[in-house]
Each structure stands twice: as C-alpha cells, then as structure tokens.
C-alpha cells in the first residue's frame, strides 16, 4: 500500500533517495544473515558427509585400535563423556537450583549481588583457567587423573549456565503461587520445590539441557584432569569386577578414578594426527559430538516453545 502511494505521487528526489537507502541497507542486513549461515551449513553438511562414512556399530562399541591400524571405535570416548557429564550433572544441578532459589529470594542483598557477580564471573572465566584450577585442586592432591576430576571441572562449567537460566525461569513464576502455598501452611522448602519449581519446570529443564550441551562439548578443562584413556570401558570394568569378586564400591571407584577419554578430547587428539584412519575417525567423532550438542539444543528449545504454547493456549 505504502509503496503504491510513493509510486503514484511524484515525490521530491530526497524522498526517493531515502527510500532507496532504506531498501539497500535493509537488504544488506538480510545478506549478512545468509553470510552468517554459511559457516554453519558448511560445517554441518561437511561433518555429516565425512563423518557418516566411518560411523557403524563398531564405532560405538569398540575400543580404539593401535595407531595406523584400521577399524576400532571410540567407545572409550563415548562412555567417558557420558560418565563425566553424569558426574557433572549430579553435582551441578542441585547446587545450581539451590543457588537460583537463593537469588530468587534474596536478589538485592549484598550476598545476592556478590553471588550474581561470581556466577557471571565463573561463566566468563576461560575454560582453560578452570582446567588449571581443576588440576591443582582435584588431580594433584589425589595424584591421579580421573573421570571424577573431569566431571568436577565440567560441573564448574555447567553451574553458571544452569544457575542463570533457572533463576530467569523461577522469576517468571507468579508471586501469588508462592504466597498461596505459604498461606495454606506449607513450609518454604516445600513451596519452593513442589510449587515454584514445578511451575517453572519446563524452563529449568531447558536450562539444564543447555548446560549439558555446554559441558559435553568442552575440551580445554579436560586436558589436565581427564588426560585421556584408550582403554576406558565401563562395561569392561563391571564385567572384570564381577569376575574378580569386587564389591560394588570397588567397581564404582574404578569407573570414577581412572583417567578417561571424552568425545571432544578424542577429536582434538585425532584431528592432529598424520594417520589417515585417525583423521577419518575424527570426522565421525565430530558428527557424534555435533549431533549430541545440537540435538540437546534444538530439543531443549523446541520443547520449551511447545510447552509454552500448550500452557498459554
């Protein structure tokens, strides 16, 4: 409509020029979006094409072969990533929720401000610095590189992500819900956990999934804590443990106390290899890692959007 009017009336040149500038610049912003999309499309397509070729069942269930030999898989890295992310989640999620509740109840106190600042700081500290910290705190005193140390540093990476997203989500819960629950005589902790948390659950879960995605893709802090292990095999440890009458605790200890590989760590090692088999496999690792991270991300966001639409009609 607008355009029609402009076209019919013989406008002074300055108007036409302004309209022209407007169209060109706005068109350019559209172009930048396309440009920004190129690397993503390039990476995703290439990783899928190259990675797909090396992915088969063996890739998921076998340990790596010796350097230069064909075949073998990266089950050590897959299992290691899973174990460390579970450790990180067990530690980080409850802690993050408690902190988020604290920030919800005491946002403007001096401690509240300090904690928000430290959360921001923790998420801003380069992950390699967290790696050094993890080495000094979790590796040196115990004289052992371990899955546990790796899990702990990943928890430190995950913590601020989950704190911030959960806090945002908890804040969105209407005050009346809390007041109503308290008025009915429910204690504060129960109100928090079974009213506020439940009401904000979708958002909180989304935040947790984003935190998991962040943790699973981290390499730098694992260099000095998990070290790497081509023989890491949880099922093997369990089988071996049963065969040699070990207690549950001993098996558990073995799983957590051994040096461990992780998908990004393996990718980093394999990508810088002259052996063509390893380089081929590194694309496969990249594919698995990328799918995990992107699916966690897309899944979290889509789920949230869907739930929101459901509840808000």
């Amino acid at each position: 409509m607008n355009g029609d009017i402009f076209a019919q009336v013989n406008l002074p040149r300055v108007y036409r020029r302004r309209k022209w500038v407007n169209n060109i610049i706005l068109g350019l912003t559209g172009l930048t979006v396309i440009l920004a999309g190129i690397p993503l499309v390039w990476i995703v397509i290439y990783v899928i094409l190259k990675g797909w070729r090396v992915i088969n069942l063996d890739f998921f269930i076998h340990l790596p072969t010796a350097m230069g030999a064909t075949g073998g898989g990266v089950t050590n890295a897959i299992q290691g990533s899973i174990v460390m992310v579970i450790v990180a989640a067990i530690i980080a999620i409850p802690l993050a929720l408690l902190i988020a509740f604290y920030l919800l109840y005491y946002p403007q106190t001096r401690l509240g401000v300090a904690i928000r600042f430290s959360t921001d700081l923790l998420s801003g500290v380069p992950s390699i610095v967290i790696g050094i910290f993890g080495y000094a705190l979790f590796v040196l005193p115990f004289k052992h590189f371990s899955a546990l140390a790796g899990g702990l540093v990943l928890a430190m990476i995950m913590l601020p992500v989950v704190v911030r997203s959960s806090e945002e989500m908890l804040k969105l819960v209407p005050k009346e819900l809390r007041e109503g629950s308290l008025a009915l005589g429910a204690p504060e902790w129960k109100t928090s956990l079974s009213v506020i948390l439940v009401a904000a659950m979708e958002g909180v879960v989304t935040g947790i999934m984003l935190g998991l995605a962040r943790a699973i893709g981290e390499t730098a802090p694992l260099l000095f804590t998990a070290l790497g292990n081509e023989h890491y095999d949880v099922f093997g440890y369990i089988k071996q443990g049963i065969a040699t009458n070990q207690s549950l605790w001993e098996i558990f200890h073995k799983i957590l106390a051994e040096p461990t590989d992780a998908l990004p760590l393996t990718l980093w090692k394999y990508a810088q290899q002259p052996y063509p088999e390893r380089v081929e496999q590194s694309w496969g690792v990249a594919l698995v890692l990328m799918l995990l991270v992107l699916l966690l991300n897309i899944g979290a966001r889509t789920w949230l959007a869907w739930k929101r639409r459901q509840t808000h009609g």
């Binding site: 920004a36 290439y46 981290e218 390499t219 980093w268 810088q272 590194s282 990249a286 991300n297 897309i298």
Partner: peptide, 25 residues
C-alpha cells in the same frame, strides 16, 4: 524461528569442531 535457531546453533557448535573444520577446510 529458524533464523533464531541458526544463531543459537552457531553459538553451540563445540569449539573443537570449529578447529577441525578450520584445519581441513
């Protein structure tokens, strides 16, 4: 929505994958 997803994905790709893509492509 798809464009917002694209931006989020671009931020989410692990940095080692950027490195791998960087070295070889």
């Amino acid at each position: 929505t798809p464009l917002n997803y694209m931006v989020e994905m671009l931020a989410a790709v692990p940095s080692v994958i950027y490195g791998l893509w960087g070295i070889y492509l």
